[in-house]
Amino acid sequence: MRLHVYLLALPLFAGCQYLPRTEYFTAPQNEPNPAFIRIINFTQHASIYQYSNGVRSGGVVRTGPLPFIHTQDIGMPKAGQDLTFDFYETSVQPGKETEVHMSWEGEKTRYCFVTAKFTPQPGRYYQFRMTSGDEGSCKLFPTTVEQSADGAWTLKPNPDVTYPHGGPERKASYGNDLYRDPNYKPFVPPT
């Protein structure tokens, strides 16, 4: 009887290799002088990738589907911001091309995304904040967090960021064009 159970379970376990696999971003260990990144808003749809000799590593910053708001505070300077909401801070390896991808998902299959590339410098603080696509577009605000002569932390635009898919502002799109019609009602089978 036990052999039969094993033989029946074998196809189930063999099929696991075909299930989708999520790659997660992992902060570098033992980096002597890292750079730091803060992502504000929509961390459930954000990812960080770094390139080394043409090989991309990294992934999404969330480590699970719940909670819907994920905050990781590692002590980056806040620059006078009241950060009590959804944000994620991490260290990254400096001197490597880095890609920050942020996206928003709304109702009726609407979505919007922005991808930014830059090369972080050792010991520097970088921040990426994105607005939602509720008004028809989303916008990414890449900044550096810098300390002024009087010791106050401030945000300054990051001029080193490039956008491989356009610019910092993107139009929201529909994953299903049928939802463009405000009167569209998806078919729901009777119960």
Rank of each mutant, 00 (worst) to 15 (best):
Q29L: 14
D150R: 09
T63D: 12
R2D: 15
Q81E: 08
Y49G: 07
N183Q: 13
K185R: 08
G151C: 13
T63V: 06
V60W: 02
N30A: 14
Q29E: 14
G59A: 12
S52C: 02
E99K: 10
L178K: 12
D177F: 07
N176V: 08
I40K: 01
R21Q: 11
P157Y: 00
K171F: 04
G54N: 04
V161S: 04
P120M: 13
A79H: 12
K96Y: 02
Y126M: 10
P65A: 15
T26P: 01
H45I: 13
S52M: 10
L66H: 11
Q17N: 11
A116I: 01
A14Y: 14
C138H: 01
M102Q: 15
F25G: 00
K185I: 11
G166I: 12
S132M: 01
P65L: 09
A79D: 05
V161R: 03
L7M: 11
I39W: 00
A152Q: 14
G95P: 01
P157V: 07
W153E: 05
Y179I: 08
K78I: 14
F187E: 11
F87M: 03
L12I: 13
S148F: 03
I74R: 08
M76E: 12
E135V: 12
V5H: 06
N41T: 15
E146H: 02
S103N: 10
T115A: 08
A152L: 02
R21W: 03
Y126I: 06
Y184M: 07
G133I: 00
K96R: 10
P67I: 11
M76Q: 09
E107M: 10
G95W: 01
G151D: 14
L83G: 02
F141R: 00
T131Y: 01
S52I: 12
Y49N: 12
C16A: 09
R110P: 08
T84A: 13
R129D: 10
G167Y: 08
I69K: 03
H70R: 05
G136H: 07
K117C: 03
C138I: 01
L178T: 04
T43R: 00
I39D: 00
T63Q: 11
R124V: 04
Y163V: 11
V145T: 09
T109F: 07
W104V: 00
C112E: 01
Y125T: 15
I48Y: 00
T119F: 07
S91L: 03
F68H: 10
T144K: 08
E169H: 05
P186L: 06
T143S: 08
G15P: 06
Y163F: 15
P120R: 03
F87A: 00
Y184F: 14
F87H: 01
L140T: 00
D86S: 13
T98L: 12
F25A: 08
E169D: 15
P186E: 15
P67A: 06
G136K: 08
Y88R: 02
P189V: 01
W104Q: 07
R62H: 07
E23D: 15
P142Q: 09
P189Y: 05
E169S: 13
Y163Q: 10
